[in-house]
């Protein structure tokens, strides 16, 4: 038993209503409330609402983490718009959260891959890396056939090299042919093709 009575002010982690505490004026209370809010999907709407106006980096990270813990298609949808933030720190927080909920992200992938913003499409390619789905290589191949920005193609090729197989090779060659003057994409496609061939059953390592 402690000799001195603990008079330290406990933040709102023990609060019965984390959703209400998310709007506290105290960043410490908002942080604790965000951490607690991730325990219950019922707090999703409140988390999404405060995320839009939260300016404290630590609280924002806790909100992203809470949304990732809830891990539903709705919580992924709440995070996705932050991929287009001007603030790299916010983009990173959003991307980390989305990476942590691959199954929830799956429902929105086709939309993200068709986004008008090339940066969102590029980050969406990266999200496929963590999705365990046998169709994932096919999604990337279909995407590569139509994507018109070389940088975005390079991101897709990078992921395809990890999760694809030799069936992706014709897509890679067609992509290379569409961007004959891009040295990095040519390099990326060559490395990816070598890797896919090396990983093919029966190939010598």
């Amino acid at each position: 038993m402690p000799l001195i009575k603990n008079t330290f002010h406990r933040p709102a982690s023990s609060s019965p209503d984390p959703a209400a505490a998310l709007t506290s004026v105290s960043p410490d209370e908002r942080w604790a409330a965000a951490r607690a809010a991730g325990d219950d999907p019922v707090n999703l709407a409140a988390l999404a609402q405060v995320l839009a106006r939260e300016s404290d980096t630590r609280v924002r990270e806790a909100i992203f983490t809470a949304l990732a813990r809830i891990a539903t298609p709705e919580s992924a949808l709440a995070v996705l718009p932050y991929l287009r933030s001007d603030d790299a720190n916010i983009r990173t927080g959003a991307l980390d959260a989305l990476r942590a909920m691959p199954e929830a992200v799956k429902a929105h992938l086709s939309q993200a891959l068709a986004d008008a913003d090339a940066d969102v499409r590029l980050l969406a390619c990266d999200l496929i890396r963590n999705i365990r789905d046998e169709d994932a290589p096919r999604w990337l191949c279909e995407f590569l056939e139509i994507e018109h920005v070389a940088n975005v193609c390079a991101a897709a090729v990078d992921v395809l090299a990890e999760i694809g197989d030799v069936q992706a090779l014709p897509t890679l060659w067609r992509c290379a042919a569409r961007f004959p003057n891009d040295p990095f994409l040519a390099f990326a496609i060559k490395v990816a093709a070598d890797r896919l061939r090396a990983n093919a059953p029966g190939s010598r390592v």
Binding site: D86, D87, A88, L122, N151, A154, D182, P183, L185
Partner: peptide, 27 residues
């Protein structure tokens, strides 16, 4: 970076970048 917007370049400079180039880059 792939980010080519003026705000991205300004943010990098403010953060301490000495120069900013947009991907892709040749040898």
């Amino acid at each position: 970076s792939t980010e080519a917007g003026a705000q991205d370049i300004a943010a990098a400079r403010a953060g301490g970048a000495n120069f900013y180039l947009v991907k892709p880059l040749g040898w």
